[in-house]
Amino acid sequence: MNEFHLTEDQQDCLQELINIAMGQASDQLARYLDTFVYLKVPSIESVEAKDLMKTLSQQKNTMAVVSQGFFGYEGIRGESLLVYQEEDSGRIADLLGYEPDELSQDEQLIDISSILTTTFLNVFAQQIDNRLSYNAPKLLPNVQEILSEHLQQMPFTWELALKVNINYQVTDYSFNCNMILLIPETAITNIKHVLDRILEEY
């Protein structure tokens, strides 16, 4: 049994907190793109460190990964990874509609990732009575060795990751991106306590 094993009620509570965070992140994305974002129920699962490394290294149609660290009170900290498929990052650039030399595709991807990550995490943190600060987002080059090196060089030990599978459909376009939250054990224990506290209110 892993640290993130949740009871049915805890799972339902976490899913609802994530839905609310996701809804606001999508609203920000929609405003940024000046369009409507079609929202689906995001699926969540927890992944062990070694399995995550394996999954990420097996995704051969190389992707872009934008990584951003976050930290709050009471041991809440982690790293958010937004994982894009290669074919999708081009579509996102189309959507953004910048003049080609105004902002590079990389910069656009970093922008959009940071909007999604910080809005999502701010709303999530608010609901669990926490407040987060962020490091600057970083786009990792499409090289597997660099990705695994990056994952191994986190400033904290993470045994588990919370994987939130998000699918965005933006008008005629659709793109998938996975938000992967790498969370150390202390933060996981803290989140579970907060979930229990919320559940006690009902």
Binding site: M22, G23, S26, D27, A30, F36, L39
Partner: peptide
């Protein structure tokens, strides 16, 4: 009552 708060929705 929804989390999807986009004005268009």
């Amino acid at each position: 009552i929804s989390a999807d708060i986009q004005p268009e929705m």
